[in-house]
Simulated assay, not measured.
Amino acid sequence: MTDSKIRIKDIAERAGVSVGTVDRVLHKRPNVSPNAKEKVEKALEEMNYQPNMYASALAYNKTYTFHVIIPQHEQIAYWEEIEEGVKNAQEARRDFHITAEIHHYERFNVNSFKKTTESCLQAKPDGVVIVPADLESTRVFTDQLHAQNIPFVMLDSYMPDLKPLSFFGQDSFASGYFAARMLMLIAAKEKQIVLMKFTKNGYVASKQQDNREVGFRHYMHDHFPDTKIIEFEVPLDGSRSLYNKQMEDLFQAHPDIHHCITLGSKAHIMGDFLLRTNRRDVQIMGYDMVGKNADCLRRGSISFLIAQHAFLQGYSCIDTLFQAIVLKKEVNPINYMPIELLSKENVDFYRRTQL
């Protein structure tokens, strides 16, 4: 007998209990004696019963609200693709009455993060997707989520001590290590390279980029210890004229530089400068299939890009909450995204929305 033909009545007859008792066991409701529960579970095992979780969830007709808490951004492709993935996942599960609300906080602003997370807690969502701030601020929030039995998925930066339901993002250390290795395939004979870092108030844009730098420097230390790494810090919210002045000064001070790298998505800022100033002997490597990055890659000022599959990350976070909360399924606790290398030869074949 296949589980599609197994009726509650059949289970009740085999277990020697009422239909109501079987229903309470299947839906994990109270007021079932240990003896009756044991009989029902034995019958289910003998009959190889596998419940149709989709049908059960649809029949339950409950609404679910998931909150997605991410940094504010101004048309940064990585975050835009995250949001697009979230909205796509919501649409894919519309029959289950899923709503995904996106809330933003100002990165590096503890009060903004606190205000956003407090508002989230007051709304009592069924699940949360969170891009962490600093560890302690995030811990205050996640401790309250645990206390209220609200599952949460971490995106972009992994903090295992906070015990999320799941995590989606690249293995940042491995990604930085890989980036260094790819860069040095073409820069192996260089005596110095530039590490361009976008900062705000003295901090890089994310913990993820910090971890990438650890991986990057680990590779360089092990394999190219004599290659000098010149740190080049530029403000995250700088103007084009400021960037131009800083880069002019950089190359005037270091005329023998031929290769640069940034561990974020703004390689195009230098790439565009190199094209406008006709510096054909310099290239930069970076992250993300941003439109401007792709253009510089095709025109030769960017050597490589590492793709992050941001759309897939956003989609998967919502789908994981759906699987765990609505369908009551176990989910993978750690989900590392692929580390893919894009060059001008394959960039046009990369599908950023591929599932």
Rank of each mutant, 00 (worst) to 15 (best):
E231C: 00
L162K: 10
P160F: 12
K189V: 08
E248M: 03
L183M: 15
G176P: 02
L195H: 12
M154G: 02
E233W: 02
A174P: 02
Q192K: 15
Q246R: 07
K197M: 09
G176W: 09
A188S: 15
I186W: 05
D256W: 03
M247A: 03
K197D: 09
V234W: 00
S239I: 00
P225H: 11
L250A: 01
E248R: 02
E233D: 10
V234R: 04
F173A: 06
Y243N: 03
L165P: 00
P164T: 12
I229H: 00
D171W: 08
P225F: 10
K163A: 15
S206T: 15
Q170H: 15
D226W: 03
M220D: 03
R217S: 06
G176N: 12
M182G: 00
K163M: 14
M220Q: 13
H221N: 14
M196G: 02
A187M: 09
Y158H: 13
E190C: 13
E190F: 08
L165C: 08
G202W: 05
E190N: 13
V204A: 06
I230E: 02
K191Y: 07
Y158T: 02
A180F: 11
F178P: 02
P255G: 08
A187Y: 06
L250H: 01
Y243V: 00
V214Q: 09
S206G: 12
G202V: 05
S172T: 08
Q192T: 08
Y203F: 11
K197H: 04
M184R: 05
R217M: 15
G169S: 09
F173R: 09
A180N: 11
S166V: 08
R212T: 07
V234C: 04
F251N: 03
V204D: 11
D171K: 13
Y219V: 07
K200R: 12
R240D: 05
V194A: 06
S172G: 03
G238S: 07
A253P: 01
Q246K: 09
G202I: 06
F198C: 04
L242C: 00
H223T: 11
V194C: 09
V214C: 01
A179V: 11
E248P: 01
H254C: 01
D156W: 06
L165D: 05
V234Q: 04
F232N: 04
N211E: 15
S157G: 02
D156M: 13
D210F: 05
K228P: 02
G176C: 06
Q246I: 00
N211W: 05
M182D: 07
D156S: 13
A205Y: 07
M196V: 14
A205E: 14
N211R: 12
Q170F: 09
L155I: 15
Q252D: 10
M182E: 15
G238I: 00
